[in-house]
């Protein structure tokens, strides 16, 4: 998957959960990623965040940091 596509998908998820009530949106995004993304996709986005997370929504960055 191209980095652009991965970033785009993660940002789409973040955009949805940003609109949801509550204070734990980052956890919601992290849960969604854990529930639906295959480990190699998770690894890729974790690596991307470790490398600065360029292009990623702030909420997505915080969520990815919660994924071990």
């Amino acid at each position: 998957m191209s980095p652009e596509k991965m970033i785009y998908m993660a940002n789409q998820i973040a955009t949805f959960f940003k609109s949801q009530p509550g204070t734990n949106q980052a956890e919601m995004v992290a849960n969604h990623l854990r529930d639906f993304w295959d480990p190699r996709m998770l690894r890729k986005i974790c690596d991307h965040v470790a490398g600065g997370g360029e292009g990623l929504d702030d909420l997505a960055v915080r969520a990815v940091r919660m994924i071990p």
């Binding site: 998957m1 191209s2 596509k5 639906f36 993304w37 295959d38 480990p39 190699r40 996709m41």
Partner: peptide, 18 residues
């Protein structure tokens, strides 16, 4: 215990070589 690939992800992963 970990989720697998969805169809579009399979195709992406194929292009990536995994």
């Amino acid at each position: 215990p970990e989720p697998g690939l969805r169809i579009p992800n399979m195709l992406d992963a194929a292009v990536d070589g995994t």
